[in-house]
Write a protein that binds this DNA or RNA. Structure first.
Lengths: 169, 169
DNA sequence: CCGATAATGTTGAAGTTTGTACAAAGAGTG
DNA sequence: CACTCTTTGTACAAACTTCAACATTATCGG
């Protein structure tokens, strides 16, 4: 039922500079992997009745928080940690669904904005409360406030480290 | 640079039973999402030179830990949290790559074992130290031992909760 | 101003994942 | 035993992601 991934597996030798994970380390690592996969699965599942996938939802949120509910494709790709190519396809699909539109960019004739449509906004408005309920029920509300602080203190720097790596590569 | 997903976004009302995330809750939630995405990206990237994807690696590990380096398809799908369909495709690819083979199941003529080949075992042997180094460098070694304990105490139950949900649906 | 270089996005093909339907074999029941 | 119900794994088609190539426009140096 667990999800191994960096295991000793009797018969294989670790590198000198990177010993196998201890039992405690390993169970944490596996818990993290499981939570990642399962949470995405579950949240996606609960979003499905609304006809949205996690990717769609994330984009709606990001756009909704921007000044004019719009963002340059490249920035949106960066904000959502996707490749430009993937985002382009994604936006094409969402455009077909009427959630966003592409609009040319005044100052830069190469650029495009992805813009939230009214329909997109209404959809978000309708879906957000349910999604927040999911996030609370399956994640946030399972921690007390000390844990919330401790988790952020631990995970925040990891996220920052990885974000920095991604930039260059 | 962050990855919103359950945000208030001025102008949308929360449900009565599920208020918006507080600032602390939200930054944790976003950190978690970012770590999930970025870590998978980075680990996958560092696995690439070995010609493996995370999925491949995970399957090698799971099989390597089994008594005869084999597991029934259904069990393997459950262990790796994939659909049976997806696993079937995955094993087909890995079989082509020579990492595993399918073997019939003596007691149950419907069943098949996915079996680690010698090549698969050697590959794991070669790749594992590097992967563990990655996991340490980008995740485990960024916490002190108190944090490791605290994180597991927090995440373990969440994983258990989500696993239980998955079973039924 | 021109030419080289870089940035913005898209495209199309190939590869992966998902969802549903299906064939084959076991299990339980009268 | 026959009948139904369940379990196992695959196969196909549709949806999604990745990768590399490309067209277009901006930017920088002489």
């Amino acid at each position: 039922m667990e999800t191994p991934t960096a295991s000793p597996a009797a018969g294989i030798e670790a590198a000198d500079d990177a010993p196998w994970l201890t039992a405690e380390e390993q169970r944490l690592w596996r818990a993290h992997l499981d939570v990642c996969k399962l949470l995405e699965y579950q949240l996606g599942r609960e979003l499905q009745p609304h006809g949205l996938a996690m990717n769609d939802y994330e984009i709606l949120v990001v756009l909704s928080e921007e000044p004019h509910r719009r963002m340059r494709m490249t920035d949106l790709a960066a904000a959502t940690l996707q490749s430009k190519s993937r985002l382009s396809h994604q936006i094409t699909r969402m455009e077909k669904a009427g959630l966003v539109v592409r609009e040319g960019c005044p100052g830069d004739r190469r650029g495009l904005y992805a813009v939230l449509t009214d329909d997109g906004w209404q959809t978000l408005r309708k879906v957000a409360p349910d999604h927040v309920r999911s996030v609370r029920h399956h994640f946030i509300d399972r921690f007390d406030s000390d844990q919330i602080a401790a988790l952020y203190e631990a995970l925040g720097p990891v996220a920052a480290h990885l974000r920095a790596l991604r930039g260059r590569g």
